[in-house]
Design a protein around this nucleic acid. Sequence first.
DNA 1: ATGACTCATCCAATGAGA
Length: 268
Amino acid sequence: MKIATYNVNGVNGRLPVLLRWLAEARPDIVCLQELKSPDERFPADALSDAGYRALWHGQKSWNGVAILSRAGMIHETLRGLPGEPEDTQSRYLEAAANGVIVAALYLPNGNPRPGPKFDYKLRWFERLASRAQELLDSGLPVILAGDFNVIPTDQDVYKPERWTEDALFVPEVREAYARLLDQGWTDALRKMHPGERIYTFWDYFRNAWGRDAGLRIDHLLLSPALAKRLKAAEVDSFVRGWEKTSDHAPVWVELKPDRTARRSIRGS
DNA sequence: ATGACTCATCCAATGAGA
């Protein structure tokens, strides 16, 4: 089973690129971020024609997350993170699909720092960590997939010294990410590629793609049950080179079949 | 240090992204 995350930076403007990538990559489940679309303009028909059922949590102009599945039904389990009822930003959607709990998330950027946007990022991080702990405690197979807006280490940025004051890289944020992992999550891309420079985002500015001046900020975190099934994790960086593309590239994991489930099917 | 680029917004100039 292949599960992907892709910050599309505008789901309607990006539709041709998204459909092309879906046709080529054939992921079973996809988490999308930055829909930048109100719910009524989400391209559900075009995605349905491409073979995907969808669940979406949109918002006019900004944010917005969605979960696509071609594997079967999607059952919503949570829309928005608890803990801040006045928060109207559409950044979290969670569902059960194909035997897995999938959380699609778009963590706040947090710049400029210091300021209210940075404070909001830290609060949102805490709310995510609370939910993540609940999900781990459930013992279910869970994947947290999305744009975390966190550069975890020096290895994940083309020029660390340029980013020391940035809300994506300051120690406070990197520590929050490390604490999240310490709950028991596996950073799938890093697990499969230790010691490798690997990016998921390249700025539109300054020919960042041409210079390979990237950041690794889109992450796929696996609960222990799914970490055992991890087979491959990659970035479809070629998509970043397409016309009218997003500044992010899709990231995906391939999971081995669930041995427990297979045993039960065989009845042994 | 700034701004470069791209998206979405009642179409123009602005906010947001990272």
